[in-house]
């Protein structure tokens, strides 16, 4: 029991270290610029108007002269558990299907590629081993 608690604490310590480092990095304007300037909009989150990259790591919406939090249309009593949010009402539609594919296709591709490469490498290794292990083999006598 104590062993498990110790292990959980060790994991939480590692989590805290990573979170702390992330927060500290987020405070540096260089890192904020690097993150903000990479990649396009995925359609999930909207960038608030009038926000400069240099102040991205700064305080939140509506603080220190920053623009107010954009209206995502989900306020008023607070969203519940019906899956309502900025992303719309949720549910299964073509966009959702495409987003599933966007996650599943890379996973399938990478898995297939790595498994094939591993099998090829194993095959080569085995072939090399059998060639070395069998001195009477005609392939080895050349």
């Amino acid at each position: 029991m104590m062993k498990t608690v110790g292990r959980i604490l060790a994991i939480l310590l590692a989590v805290t270290a990573v979170a702390g480092a992330t927060y500290a990095l987020g405070q540096t304007s260089w890192f904020a610029e690097q993150v903000a300037s990479r990649g396009g909009d995925r359609g999930g989150f909207e960038r608030p108007d009038g926000e400069e990259f240099g102040e991205l790591a700064g305080p939140g919406f509506g603080q220190d002269g920053r623009p107010e939090r954009p209206d995502f249309g989900d306020d008023g009593g607070g969203p519940g558990f019906e899956g309502r949010g900025r992303e719309g009402a949720g549910g299964f539609n073509l966009f959702a299907l495409a987003a599933f594919a966007r996650t599943l296709v890379p996973i399938a591709l990478v898995t297939t590629a790595v498994v094939l490469l591993t099998k090829l490498a194993d095959g080569w290794r085995k072939r090399g081993k059998t060639a070395v292990a069998a001195p009477g083999d005609p392939l080895n006598q050349a």
Binding site: G44, G83, G88, G90, G91, A99, L104
Partner: peptide, 18 residues
């Protein structure tokens, strides 16, 4: 859970976060 959670359009924000 990972596959479903990556699709915020499908889950909606509340389910995505929880």
């Amino acid at each position: 859970a990972f596959i479903i959670d990556m699709n915020t359009r499908f889950t909606g924000l509340a389910i995505h976060e929880w």
